[in-house]
Amino acid sequence: MAATYALEMTERMTIIRGDLERDSEYLCEFEDAWNVWKYDGTEKTVPLPPDYENSVYRWAKMGVPIQLIERAIKTAMTKSRLRGPFPEFTYMAGIVWRTLEETDVPIGLTEATVRLYTAGELEERLTNERIEAYLQGCATRGA
């Protein structure tokens, strides 16, 4: 049982490392797209709020296409008379969230969606069953 637990933990850490790497790549793509824009006549980039990474990581986890964010950045950077703290980022983030909210999703499920969703559910169920089996094994040994 201990070997199984160790293998499962190794697998989980591998998944977490992969997620962190993908998040970092997504953040780099965002920053590259953002830093293309400079203040008129200078090499100074448009500032980002201190917590901008939280939004970017959330979009990465949600699977928001970077192309949508790039388009929103362009729209925000070319918009005049924006006000407030970090107005370009705020406006850009609003475009991203509004686009996500307004995107129509068909009510019916496709075969591909059902297969993907079911595979995810199956993995979750198997993981939960493994954890339960491990805990029951520990409880049995402790009794």
Rank of each mutant, 00 (worst) to 15 (best):
6 A>P: 05
16 I>W: 06
29 E>T: 10
28 C>E: 13
9 M>G: 03
20 L>K: 07
10 T>M: 14
28 C>M: 09
13 M>D: 15
32 D>I: 04
21 E>L: 10
21 E>Y: 07
36 V>I: 15
15 I>R: 14
21 E>W: 07
26 Y>A: 02
48 L>K: 02
19 D>I: 12
46 V>C: 03
23 D>P: 05
33 A>V: 01
40 D>Q: 14
46 V>L: 04
37 W>K: 00
29 E>H: 06
18 G>Y: 08
32 D>T: 08
23 D>I: 06
40 D>Y: 12
15 I>D: 13
32 D>S: 14
14 T>Q: 13
18 G>V: 09
41 G>H: 00
32 D>G: 06
38 K>W: 02
34 W>K: 01
50 P>R: 09
30 F>W: 03
6 A>S: 14
22 R>P: 00
43 E>S: 07
21 E>M: 08
40 D>M: 13
50 P>L: 06
8 E>V: 05
22 R>M: 09
17 R>M: 11
31 E>Y: 05
41 G>Y: 04
48 L>P: 00
43 E>W: 04
31 E>G: 01
50 P>V: 05
22 R>C: 07
32 D>P: 05
50 P>Q: 06
48 L>I: 02
47 P>D: 02
18 G>I: 10
39 Y>T: 11
6 A>V: 08
19 D>H: 10
35 N>E: 09
35 N>A: 03
17 R>C: 11
23 D>F: 05
28 C>H: 10
40 D>P: 15
26 Y>G: 02
16 I>H: 06
12 R>I: 09
28 C>S: 13
44 K>N: 14
25 E>K: 12
46 V>A: 03
10 T>I: 14
6 A>W: 05
12 R>H: 11
30 F>K: 01
7 L>F: 08
32 D>N: 09
49 P>Q: 06
33 A>C: 02
18 G>D: 11
23 D>L: 08
14 T>W: 09
22 R>D: 06
19 D>K: 11
8 E>F: 06
37 W>C: 01
34 W>D: 02
11 E>Y: 09
39 Y>W: 15
31 E>A: 06
16 I>C: 04
42 T>Y: 00
8 E>K: 06
22 R>F: 10
47 P>C: 03
12 R>E: 07
32 D>R: 05
38 K>A: 01
29 E>I: 04
41 G>R: 02
33 A>Y: 00
8 E>C: 09
25 E>D: 13
49 P>E: 03
12 R>K: 13
42 T>P: 03
43 E>G: 05
30 F>S: 03
37 W>H: 07
11 E>Q: 12
31 E>D: 10
30 F>C: 00
11 E>A: 15
14 T>I: 10
7 L>M: 15
18 G>L: 12
21 E>R: 14
29 E>A: 13
50 P>F: 06
8 E>L: 09
33 A>E: 01
51 D>A: 13
44 K>P: 05
19 D>R: 12
21 E>I: 10
38 K>Y: 01
9 M>N: 07
47 P>V: 00
17 R>H: 12
12 R>L: 14
13 M>A: 15
33 A>L: 00
33 A>H: 01
16 I>G: 04
45 T>N: 02
33 A>D: 00
36 V>L: 11
51 D>C: 08
8 E>N: 12
15 I>H: 13
43 E>R: 04
18 G>M: 11
35 N>K: 06
12 R>C: 11
45 T>Q: 02
10 T>P: 09
